[in-house]
Design a protein around this nucleic acid. Sequence first.
DNA 1: CATGAATGAGTCTTCATTCAT
DNA 2: TATGAATGAAGACTCATTCAT
Lengths: 212, 212, 212, 212
Amino acid sequence: MAKKPPARIGRPPSSNAADTRLRIIAVASELFARKGYGIVTNKDVAEAAGISTGALYYYFSSKLEMYLAVYWTLQTMVDEAIGEAMRSQRTFDGRVRAILEVAHSLNAQEPHIAQFLGTARVDRLRHPELQEAITSPPGEGARIMSELIEGGIETGEVVAARRKQVEAVLQTIFVGLVDSQSDDLGRHRQAVDGLLALLDHKLLLPAKRAAK
Amino acid sequence: MAKKPPARIGRPPSSNAADTRLRIIAVASELFARKGYGIVTNKDVAEAAGISTGALYYYFSSKLEMYLAVYWTLQTMVDEAIGEAMRSQRTFDGRVRAILEVAHSLNAQEPHIAQFLGTARVDRLRHPELQEAITSPPGEGARIMSELIEGGIETGEVVAARRKQVEAVLQTIFVGLVDSQSDDLGRHRQAVDGLLALLDHKLLLPAKRAAK
Amino acid sequence: MAKKPPARIGRPPSSNAADTRLRIIAVASELFARKGYGIVTNKDVAEAAGISTGALYYYFSSKLEMYLAVYWTLQTMVDEAIGEAMRSQRTFDGRVRAILEVAHSLNAQEPHIAQFLGTARVDRLRHPELQEAITSPPGEGARIMSELIEGGIETGEVVAARRKQVEAVLQTIFVGLVDSQSDDLGRHRQAVDGLLALLDHKLLLPAKRAAK
Amino acid sequence: MAKKPPARIGRPPSSNAADTRLRIIAVASELFARKGYGIVTNKDVAEAAGISTGALYYYFSSKLEMYLAVYWTLQTMVDEAIGEAMRSQRTFDGRVRAILEVAHSLNAQEPHIAQFLGTARVDRLRHPELQEAITSPPGEGARIMSELIEGGIETGEVVAARRKQVEAVLQTIFVGLVDSQSDDLGRHRQAVDGLLALLDHKLLLPAKRAAK
DNA sequence: CATGAATGAGTCTTCATTCAT
DNA sequence: TATGAATGAAGACTCATTCAT
């Protein structure tokens, strides 16, 4: 009596635990993105995943754990995409443009990712449990930001004295993009194009003459 | 360890409806700003205002009504402040700068106003009841935005063809400021200064030379 | 300084305590008749009477007391009307007819009286407090019923052995009239006429022939 | 004095949904019969059924749904019993007698059924929610009534011109029986026997002579 | 692995009642 | 006399969580 049948080579039968876990994360990410942590119920997630609420507890020890699993999954994806965008360029200007583009194309491909991360920032502020669980959520984000700015100082695009200003402006822009534009792809494109034009000094022109 | 003495029932001495109503709105605005509509309980508000939950219903017919009272109070303040900032200037550039400054000084004086309006946008998406109740908030905001942009077109600062881009960028910036910087006045100042510098083409410089 | 101005002769100014009390009883009787003790709130009564809820407590020490005041007022009116109807006749048959007629005309003049007494019977069963407070609610009713039946025995219309049956039938009919017909005067008339015809053996005839 | 041990959470051993649902309906029907919709609380029902209030919502989506489940269960039983009684007879007289008998034996077997349906009529008037939810209850009742009367016209027992009177009298009697006698089986029997005697012209006799 | 049946704490809301004015 | 401002207990309902099966 073999204790365990020797694991078959190749893909295991489709409805195993790992698949179910992924399915839960997938549906949960959309629900959390749309509604936020507090409003989505376990029942919502379970129904969308085609299982019972009880079964959720086989995969996650609590609603919080489920949320965290979604959070890290998406945050990692985004961090990787942005990191890659950064590494593809050498100048601050190029990097910012690349990040804006990658933000847009992520938004086009998986609209709920940006929405989720947008609401996650809010949910963290609202639910102390989340705040505690997601320590240094900037974690990776902060690393990327500092790499971007230090690089800009090296290339002379960022004046060291304005470092803090640049950081605050970038944060403002990235957060603003996610929060105000990620639910409409067309508007998101306009915003990205506008920001690129702003960097090129083409978005706004000097006034023709003083108004009366 | 004196537990707070169980407040006597009946009308408390020297109480005044108008005062109490204002007190409720004041504490509720802070709580809603920090926690959002769904998470703040009537009990939270009542305790912060020093009354019982039942008494809330003497002033507002439901939690929703209470929220709306807070919403319109703050929204009106902000609309007025921004409208005034706009009317103080004639150029697009001047107006944007004035709005950024007024945003900062509002934030300095009443930190939770911006926070509240930021979370209100999220809460509207999450709670259909709020969505239904708040129909005109684009109302005033949209009016201001369109006045700003049309003015910019008249002065030649905004190219008509880029109207949508400008609008999207402004939205991004204003939302980003509220959402990402309004909880820290210092960072908020950095962001505003950075944005002003950006408008002056002083925030970012051309790269000295291509990085390796 | 006269302690009390000597009571003026004649009707006192219209809005004094006694008037208010009567007004409360009047509006309360209609509300209780339509909705029942449990559903009518003090606020309902106060608003209908044009005063505040607090003021009710000047006239009645509790909702229960107010209800009882209404109850005894109406019950007395009805008992007197029925008693008079009884005394106007000597035979059982005549008395029953007279009672049916007086029931109908009361219903025509003051529709909510019957409704109130109908719901009062139900409310007594539902609210132990009422049950306790209204001891022997048959009180007068039982006296009338026994007088009616004993009279019937004397005149030979009621066989003593069927005394209980007669009593149960009369109860059934009076309660049924109040409960099932008092909200529609036309139907109430039909029921009264039908019952009178039944007493005359005119309502129902023998079957022409056995149905197939 | 053992306080009942705080029931453990989680699924209790040997529990069965169908059983629990029936148990809830059984205890709820008695409570509603005695106290009415507005006064019976979920807690009352839950305690009587030996579960928590939350568990009620596993079976019924609201208190109203629970009430309706009870209502239709009992109403169906009664309609079937009365329909059967009707079909067992051909004459109007026979049918009325059969219905009176079946009413009595139902009352003997399940005393709270009649009480429930009696209070249901009142509750419908008092709670608009019930009124809306229960549209067809006249439905079956009205069908039976009209079948009874049309049959009586065919057999010649009911004069067509008195149709409305007959209907009103029958309603009065049936409602009166339920409302005034169903809480005491002995009195109920007296009433039924009295009504049967009334149909036989045996209940009341002519007066021997005019009273003084 | 998964469901089904349950708990209990917590939410919004209502209402009789109270008491300073 | 009357109002206005408040309490607090209770009610319907929701939901994360638990556990027998």
